[in-house]
């Protein structure tokens, strides 16, 4: 008898609670929806920052990429003159390297060279179809992607110097994190002394970047050339990055703050070369096998 009473009371209590909960949910449905949507947006942001982008983003790149291609094909005409000058300069530089400009002085050495030198880096030509320089997280879109042999983590350079690193590819487009993105870190060294550090950007001016981790005892002077170190297997060694514009050091810190004037004009990008390291996988596998021990 008593047990029954308790049971019924218990049931009514539950239904009362459920009703309250439902009322609560209905009353605050807007706030709940808001929190849910923000959580979704933050999740996408964080995944996008730290991991590969979800495949649906790749598909949307395909759509927006096509629109940007049409847009850039119109804008391109305004830059034709500048771009021609740059290409002409590059042509001259390349012509100087032609085989016909050199005399073969010793046949034996020439043959030996064929055995010693194997091609390590290959280049894929691509065109910039979208670009930004004034945001903190700048991105560049290229008109080539997976179908043309571009893969994530390949380096991107142009005739003036380094441009950035491929982050994501869709079938026909790829997205590049340029040097001027606050999340970009590129290994670079001072050409004269061979000491290397990390090139990063402070988000202020697209013409300048910072070189960190150069120890205090190294001699640095204004006008020193900064080139890629070749350690990261992304860029070949010795691609020009910029020149030292200014440097200083804080008391109590073992490293210099070095300001680099970037050699690449990010405001005016058009044709770029994507660097493919033919030995990258081999190097990566070897390096990973050591760190996993």
């Amino acid at each position: 008898m008593e047990l029954e009473f308790i049971e019924s009371e218990y049931k009514s209590l539950i239904s009362f609670d459920m009703r309250n909960l439902l009322k609560f949910l209905i009353h605050y449905h807007v706030a709940f929806l808001f929190v849910a949507l923000e959580v979704v947006a933050f999740t996408i942001t964080i995944q996008n920052n730290f991991y590969q982008r979800a495949s649906f983003i790749n598909n949307t790149t395909e759509i927006s990429g096509n629109i940007y291609r049409i847009y850039s094909s119109v804008v391109e005409y305004f830059n034709v003159r500048n771009e021609n000058d740059k290409l002409a300069l590059e042509n001259t530089a390349l012509r100087k390297l032609l085989k016909s400009n050199y005399i073969i002085n010793d046949k034996n050495i020439q043959q030996a060279n064929d055995l010693i030198y194997k091609q390590k880096y290959d280049y894929i030509n691509a065109k910039v179809i979208n670009n930004s320089v004034f945001r903190q997280t700048n991105y560049i879109t290229l008109n080539k992607g997976r179908n043309q042999g571009i893969k994530p983590d390949m380096g991107v350079i142009n005739s003036q110097g380094i441009v950035g690193i491929v982050k994501d590819v869709s079938y026909n487009f790829s997205i590049v994190i340029p040097t001027i993105n606050i999340n970009a870190h590129i290994s670079a060294k001072i050409k004269k002394t061979d000491y290397f550090g990390t090139l990063s950007w402070d988000g202020k001016d697209y013409r300048y970047a910072l070189l960190n981790e150069i120890p205090f005892h190294v001699k640095v002077s204004k006008g020193d050339t900064v080139v890629t170190s070749g350690y990261s297997s992304i860029f070949p060694e010795g691609i020009i990055t910029g020149v030292v514009k200014d440097f200083n050091f804080n008391q109590g810190n073992n490293f210099y703050n070095i300001y680099i004037q970037l050699s690449t004009d990010f405001m005016n990008l058009n044709h770029v070369n994507v660097v493919s390291n033919l030995y990258k996988d081999e190097q990566k596998i070897l390096e990973n096998s050591v760190t996993h021990d």
């Binding site: 996008n48 927006s64 930004s132 997205i175």
Partner: peptide, 16 residues
């Protein structure tokens, strides 16, 4: 966001 290549920062701000 999709057209600016800045995934989800505009989404966060506009939802707010």
């Amino acid at each position: 966001d999709i057209f600016s290549g800045t995934i989800a920062i505009h989404t966060i701000a506009t939802t707010l």
